[in-house]
Design a protein around this nucleic acid. Structure first.
Lengths: 266, 266
DNA sequence: CGCTGACTTGAATCTCTTCAAGACGTGTGG
DNA sequence: CCACACGTCTTGAAGAGATTCAAGTCAGCG
């Protein structure tokens, strides 16, 4: 069990390895027809170097980018240079869907690693509504999911301590990455610096460093930012320590009234 | 210039006074056909007393509620009782749109004042996509706008001081309430307690109290929570003091590259 | 008239920030 | 190959901002 992510080539069909399709699979199963249509919309690909801007606040994007490889950050800047990262954009995530409904994007997106994306001309998404309503619904689901994640992040920033927020984030990332096949049971590649973590969690770099060390000392995680890898030592203990709801982002199952274990609790 | 909000009866048409239609008007102009269709979907109304739950986290809603009167809060609770308010729901805002795409709502909604709402059976919203795509688009716009507001709130919590966050919030509410005719040039009814403000801004009640006093002493606002009314003394000075982007939530105009004055700056 | 909920204020404490300095690894040009 | 620069991580010490605890005011209401 050493492989942690499914390489693209190990699948016979190019469709199955598509992170967008994997992700949509958490919501519904697309027909071959729908998959073909989705692929026909894909007019071109782009690639971004680390730190390149994929979308800029205030500008109106022409394309919707769907990430295939790499990590990006959505963020907003204050006029004095302070930065708040809103969320990561991971493979399978869409950039620019909501920005297309406005004259201007409300936030910027920058590549963290080398990023490749598929681009949809944004007007095509509107016609999609009538041509393939189930696909349109899946995009709406993805948007709603994005909003759920942002809401959880708001709670982290407003009402959790630094350690709680950080642990909660690590568990959220585990779930998100598992959905697109980029994490195994308890670890994943985490290609970020402490500065990124600071701007995400609304903390100073120094405090991120100390909080990280304490989480390590408590035996909850094992993190090597140099090797870009995070290992969660004991998922249940961490989830308990940071008040992580195991049903969070688990839309694929029937709701369990009273929200009980979904992580297992065995 | 003493009246601050348009009473429902002062309009000949019941349509024009509908906050949802006012709000959509910030995005597109609905045809009579579309308005009629919208009204046909409206199957019944409900009313909620202060503190009543309109939606509960973990449960799957049957209806989409569109607020007609009153204020509500979207919020999440931690297991130890801490509460983070995500956003206010104001007249014209929709409750339960995204929750309908999941098996379970990701947050709760509670009435702050007496609230009345129109209810759409949620399955109707799906057929809307094909029957009246422009209306469906308007709902998507409203959802995207909600997300923009949540993103701005995330920045407030993560990277702004208490005073900045609070002032920024007051300006945002001014814009939102103006859109539905519930605020005049520089003041509006604000039916909340300091505790609500604390849970929204991620602060303690005590600190909200002190921050509020300082804003008052600096002559930026005049607030009487007893009389439930906030007056912004000098919009431009406050906007400058809290780094409020005047183009924020101004989707109705063409984007101004480099985002300059929209509040006037005269 | 006394209860209740909301607002207010002081004092002690704690979390997190800021400033400062040093360690380590990696890539670059001499 | 070494020297140097740069980005990132790490740690200590001082200080600011926010919380907690505690007490007291005030208005509305039964």
């Amino acid at each position: 069990m050493n492989q942690e992510q499914v390489s693209e080539k190990s699948f016979p069909s190019a469709f199955e390895s598509d992170p967008l399709i994997k992700k949509f699979g958490g919501f519904l199963t697309l027909t071959d027809d729908e998959i073909a249509y989705l692929n026909s919309l894909r007019k071109n690909q782009s690639s971004f170097e680390p730190n390149a801007e994929i979308q800029s606040e205030g500008e109106s994007p022409q394309h919707i980018h769907i990430l295939r490889h790499g990590w990006a950050v959505r963020y907003k800047l204050l006029s004095d240079g302070r930065r708040q990262i809103l969320n990561f954009a991971l493979p399978g995530d869409c950039i620019g869907i909501t920005a297309n409904l406005f004259q201007a994007a409300d936030h910027s997106v920058a590549a963290l690693t080398t990023v490749t994306s598929d681009n949809f001309p944004s007007k095509n998404l509107l016609s999609l509504c009538q041509a393939h309503p189930r696909v349109a619904l899946a995009f709406n689901w993805a948007t709603a999911r994005e909003q759920t994640i942002l809401a959880a992040h708001t709670v982290r920033l407003g009402r959790r301590s630094a350690a709680e927020a950080m642990g909660h984030l690590f568990l959220e990332l585990l779930k998100r990455l598992q959905l697109v096949g980029l994490a195994n049971k308890h670890s994943y590649e985490l290609p970020i610096t402490q500065e990124i973590l600071a701007d995400l969690l609304g903390l100073s770099i120094v405090h991120v460093n100390r909080t990280l060390r304490r989480l390590r000392q408590r035996g909850l995680i094992e993190l090597d930012l140099k090797n870009r890898r995070l290992i969660i030592k004991d998922i249940h203990r961490l989830a308990k320590a940071v008040d992580f709801d195991p049903t969070y982002l688990g839309q694929e199952r029937k709701p369990v009234k009273g929200k009980k274990q979904l992580l297992g609790e065995s």
